[in-house]
């Protein structure tokens, strides 16, 4: 997971912002409690959004406590609950396999992934034992993805489908059958969107290193950037996945999280996707560019 999924602050009330920050900090604390300090470094917005989607029932009032990462003042957080524990377990499994996948890639820049894989080794074993079905799904789809990439698959949809199914596996433990169906569809298209946006983000680097990138293969690109026609095709694909996410989310009542979920799907994803295509996503120190002025400050 890559930190692309974030709400647009402009759409959130003060209470919504505090609730989102409390979910983020709550997930961080839950990761620490279950998997140790090192696991807290895998935290990003994507995992916080996953916790929100998996939330059961209403959100309580956040508690406030000091935080090692933010020494000035107290931060809102939710104490551990079933959704935060589920999201923490899934996060560790996903991060571990993401590190393994990066290490298997012929390209360079592996030091941080070696460190991550080593730090998550024990935690991953615990998380996989807690969530064997999800671990099996992730393993199965990443094996498929690797085979497609090694075979130089020239479609966008097939490799994106592997990552989409992997993420849709996170809906497996939703108790309500309607919610499970809604989340499966929402997470499928979120996974598809993440895979394609990440491919666009990595395009110049992959072109330079000769690594596999589905956009290079699908559009037969001769440079490390999208042509006008390729960009237009990718935009249609991303927009339509967002549209299908919206159609899915409206079929479930996310209660107190409705505003956050809507601000991610109906605005945040468009902003982040647009910034990635413009090449401005990493401007201003990491991923702050796209939502500058309308990003939730954590």
């Amino acid at each position: 997971m890559f930190g692309y999924v974030r709400p647009s602050e402009a759409r959130l009330s003060e209470a919504d912002k505090e609730r989102f920050a409390a979910a983020y900090c709550g997930l961080c604390r839950t990761l620490g409690e279950r998997y140790g300090l090192a696991s807290r470094f895998i935290l990003n917005y994507d995992f916080a959004f996953l916790a929100i989607l998996l939330w059961e029932g209403e959100a309580p009032e956040p508690l406030h406590r000091g935080c090692i990462a933010h020494p000035a003042g107290k931060r809102p957080y939710f104490p551990g609950n079933a959704a935060l524990e589920l999201a923490a377990d899934y996060s560790v499994i996903l991060a571990r396999w993401q590190a393994a996948d990066a290490l298997a890639d012929p390209g360079g820049g592996k030091a941080k992934y070696r460190l991550l894989a080593a730090a998550l080794k024990g935690g991953y074993r615990q998380a996989a034992a807690r969530r064997p079905a999800f671990d099996g799904k992730v393993r199965e789809q990443l094996t498929r993805l690797r085979a497609l990439e090694e075979g130089g698959c020239a479609t966008l949809d097939e490799p994106a489908d592997a990552f989409a199914r992997l993420l849709a596996g996170a809906a497996l433990e939703a108790r309500d059958p309607v919610k499970r169906r809604v989340l499966e569809q929402l997470l499928y298209h979120l996974g598809r969107w993440i895979y394609l946006v990440d491919a666009a983000d990595d395009l110049p680097e992959d072109f330079a290193s000769g690594s596999y990138n589905p956009l290079l293969r699908r559009f037969g690109l001769e440079e490390g950037k999208l042509t006008g026609e390729a960009r237009e095709s990718l935009v249609v694909s991303l927009d339509h996945s967002i549209r299908l996410m919206g159609a899915a989310l409206e079929l479930w009542d996310f209660g107190a999280w409705s505003a956050v979920v809507r601000s991610v799907v109906y605005e945040g994803l468009f902003l982040v996707g647009g910034a990635v295509l413009e090449g401005t996503f990493h401007d201003g120190g990491g991923a702050k560019g796209p939502c500058r002025g309308n990003k939730v400050q954590l």
């Binding site: 759409r11 967002i242 902003l271």
Partner: peptide, 14 residues
Amino acid sequence: EGYETWSTGCGGSL
């Protein structure tokens, strides 16, 4: 209500 009909092709700034 209140959300614009946007496209990813519109770019990354509000």
